[in-house]
Design a binder for these strands. Structure first.
Lengths: 222, 222, 222, 222
DNA sequence: AATGAATGAGCCTTCATTCAT
DNA sequence: GATGAATGAAGGCTCATTCAT
């Protein structure tokens, strides 16, 4: 018992374990309740730390949130990179599937750091002051990448068509987060295991590939 | 009976002005900040009423919110019914366009009761206790209607394909609310006037009609 | 239906029925919750009147309370006068029994205007600004009367002995109000029907008659 | 174990000063105004603490009240135990006097923690949710003890006679709290110093001993 | 004689933050 | 490196009272 205590103390001192536990607990709570509705006391309790720990380690609630968000997207991009399973000579179709699949995996992930995609989903729907950073570092590159894939798929497409198609594709994916309550209601049998997510990715990819082909550029318009 | 109605109507107009102003102010604030972050004092100030007015007219903040939500969807559905511009002999394609167009109009409406679509968008992404009611009265019927249109468009489709396609279509539309921050960032030139919204509806409809045709039913799968 | 309405309206106008109903409802609520914790809205609702009715008929809550208290003691003294059942040639013992019996009846009365004794009990334990009046008009005369009876029963008693005996007797009776919660707890079988109350009066009278005889005046002490 | 206790004790003295001051201020205010009418801001001000201190140390007003009540009866029972001045071979008469004397001392104590008896008096006359606890821990044992003494004094008495006599004795004592306003009015010369209280205890004891002897058991009745 | 609408003061509670150790 | 104690600002709600009719 004495040893345990000492060991614990050492770890705390050596590795800043409290800081880590704080980040993890905060991720969970922020993902579940959002920035404003998350209560620092809850986070600290869940992390087994004192109320003052947040201010000690991160300055304030806002900076803790930013740290969580940053860690979140790094982890998620490492776990589910948008190039998931691709080789250098993959076709644009395969690239689109990989992109969609990775996005859905990030958003629907039920694994341990399950909150990564949810935090970003929240930021999109209700941006905080941290939005600028997350957008610059994560969202802009992702959209650029998607735009690149689409440009290869529909060579002569207008800017508008590409942009709207980006929105259509990302919108389909994100709806599994933003519309989860409705989907659960009208489509309760939908599962979210790996196979289910892959099937959803298949659907979105096939649906979108067909949609992309129908360019709504001015000169094609009736 | 007629007298009673008249009396009530008169009262609403004569004395219930505060009530009306409260509903309007609350709609605006709730749409902007969400239920929890909206401050009753702000709402009352904006409505030119006393804090106690909310308690007097609605009981409490929660019930005011429910009233706003109900008024909101009634107004929006009256202004932009999902059958907008349809005749009895409209084709399913036209019906789909009307559905999508009306949904986008509700979501993107910048007119006077501009908050209608936003409140529903919020409820979807972060349901409050009022969600059950709004879902029962508004969302369920809408999804059923969309399902009916899709069933006519893809006669032999599986349940899964129909459900996922519903999600794909609604997801594309709602993303113009839930993803507004990102869209504004990566696609800043996108306008939201009547013509712009119609063009978006054209895009989503055409995109989806093509997507629908590629049924991912088991027997067609690879 | 039309007639009923008209009739009702006429009554209100002719007899000030609202005022009466207000007094009755207020008596009930004040007795149950006390002055501060009684809510004017509850009283008005119970009386079938508007919130403003109290201020219209009585000026404010305080004056309504005073009116209730005054009506209360008049009614109670008329229903249960301290001379209850006495003739001119009754013995002091009979007078004491009548006094005690009437006091218990007023305090424990479960009949229609059941709140008379309770209001006075409350005033004793937690006086409001109305105490002065109720004391002057009701309590002082009652104590004087009791003192007179005791003086006849213990001719040579000191002032102190008389005063303390008054307190002992009234205290025994009032405890059935002020101590009702404890009594109900440690003595749950105690009933409060007419026969029960008479038995209690018998007990208190006999108990006190014996107690009175043991004058604790200095010259008799040890 | 000793270390733990000491540490806790030290903390209480070092940091828990606010907590202590809060308890003391709350006792005073609750005794004076009752639970509902006591204002937390007043308590905190009187304790030199912030409004949030109550929430921090006790959770809410209700729990603060319970803590005060508990501390109150512990202190009072330690200061004036119902066995005050008794030896093992005391007679039942002496035990009754001790009981009455201690009860009056608790109720009339004007010393530092003067609010102890008053809080219990309030709870009896107008129970809050804390009544159950105070009754179980304090009132039930006291009544049992008194019953035991009376049983020795009147060996053949019926249950009813014992119960009613308990009520008569406690009622006489408590009236010096519940009836303080009237007593002060009709008997203004009554003092409340130690000697006065002892004299009152003498009176109540002698009065009751005589009363007890006149058992109103059925077979003796009429 | 009576009322529906509206008010303002006041209360309890929550919460992120800071202080002293 | 970390914490228990304490704070101040703010929020939702209640309630007696008043206003206009």
């Amino acid at each position: 018992m004495k040893d345990q205590e000492k060991h614990k103390g050492d770890q705390d001192k050596q590795h800043g374990l409290t800081r880590q536990r704080l980040l993890e607990a905060a991720g969970e709570v922020f993902a579940e309740r959002g920035f404003r509705d998350a209560v620092v006391r809850d986070i600290c309790e869940k992390a087994g730390a004192n109320v003052a720990a947040i201010n000690y380690h991160f300055g304030n609630k806002q900076r803790l949130y930013s740290a969580v968000l940053k860690l979140s997207y790094e982890t998620a991009m490492r776990k589910y990179p948008p190039t998931l399973g691709l080789t250098d000579d993959s076709t644009p179709q395969e690239q689109l599937f990989a992109f969609v699949h990775a996005l859905l995996l990030r958003v629907l992930d039920a694994g341990r750091p399950a909150w990564h995609g949810k935090l970003v989903g929240r930021e999109m729907a209700e941006p905080t002051v941290a939005f600028e950073e997350i957008a610059r570092d994560m969202l802009d590159p992702l959209f650029l990448r998607l735009r690149g894939i689409l440009a290869k798929l529909v060579p002569g497409a207008t800017e508008d068509h590409l942009n709207r198609s980006c929105a259509s594709i990302v919108g389909q994916c994100m709806f599994y987060y933003h519309g989860r309550a409705v989907i659960h209601r009208v489509y309760p049998s939908q599962g979210y295991g790996p196979a289910d997510i892959e099937a959803l990715a298949q659907h979105v990819t096939r649906f979108s590939l067909a949609g992309l082909a129908t360019a709504d550029n001015p000169h094609k318009k009736k």
